[in-house]
């Protein structure tokens, strides 16, 4: 079986993640959508690594994981800080940017 199927699976997961980011008002859930998008990209990278028969794709996926870990730490800290300030983690509530 062709490893390209994994890439198609990655595309589907990516679009599901992006739809979650756009549709969910809960910041944590939206954040999980972001994580899913990152993982979809990782899956594509690993699949490409398999297709090309070399390790660079895996290395990239590894780096993405590290960066994602850092991102999660900071992102969740921001969510906590916002929750402290507003008693809410709804994405619709902070509308200070409204023109």
């Amino acid at each position: 079986m062709n490893p390209m199927n994994y890439v198609i699976l990655a595309a589907i997961l990516f679009s599901i993640g992006s739809a979650a980011v756009l549709l969910r008002r809960n910041a944590i859930v939206a954040f999980m959508g972001v994580e899913l998008m990152l993982n979809a990209a990782n899956l594509a990278l690993v699949a490409f690594s398999r297709i090309h028969g070399e390790l660079n794709g895996q290395i990239m996926a590894f780096f993405v994981m590290v960066v994602a870990a850092a991102e999660v730490v900071v992102g969740l800290a921001i969510i906590i800080a916002v929750f402290r300030a507003r008693q809410s983690i709804s994405l619709d509530e902070p509308a200070e940017l409204k023109g």
Partner: peptide
């Protein structure tokens, strides 16, 4: 053009997508 900026994070994300 001000009305384009509705302050909703998710709208901005939709624009990006």
């Amino acid at each position: 053009s001000r009305k384009v900026q509705n302050g909703q994070v998710r709208s901005y994300a939709a624009t990006m997508l």
